[in-house]
Write a protein that binds this DNA or RNA. Structure first.
Length: 113
DNA sequence: TTATTGACGGACG
DNA sequence: ACGTCCGCCAATA
């Protein structure tokens, strides 16, 4: 699997996340999460990297991928990505408090696709 | 070729 | 709940 296929696999998996639900790059939950769903469980960091390459107008629901602790990841000081993610999630009904989501309520962790 | 860097995750204090 | 370290691995310097 080359880099392009990796990105495509990530996007395909992310598209499966239902509206109003969130999942993680790779979580301690036995089932679910993007890196496991594409059979590359140790590539959590690269899942985030793939999302970084998405254009502004993509239809891939990137906002539904957050950290395993429920945290919306910071993009670093002076960036607005995390804030846009919070707004996008709230728009579809996800409750965000202090930049974090309750995974017990909104988490989506299927065993497979 | 070696060192650093990440939209990360987990163990541990 | 939080900070610190360590494991991870492709890209980049």
């Amino acid at each position: 699997m080359d880099g392009g296929e990796f990105h495509a696999s990530v996007y395909e998996a992310v598209r499966q996340i239902p509206p109003g639900r969130v999942t993680s790059y790779r979580s301690y939950h036995d089932s679910g999460h993007i890196a496991l769903l594409i059979s590359m469980p140790r590539h959590a960091r690269h899942v985030g990297n793939a999302l970084k390459f998405l254009p502004e107008d993509t239809d891939v629901p990137w906002q539904r991928v957050i950290g395993a602790s429920g945290q919306i990841s910071s993009r670093g000081p002076g960036t607005t990505g995390a804030e846009r993610q919070r707004a996008a999630l709230e728009d579809e009904g996800v409750v965000v408090q202090e930049m974090r989501v309750n995974l017990n309520q909104f988490g989506w962790f299927p065993a497979s696709l």
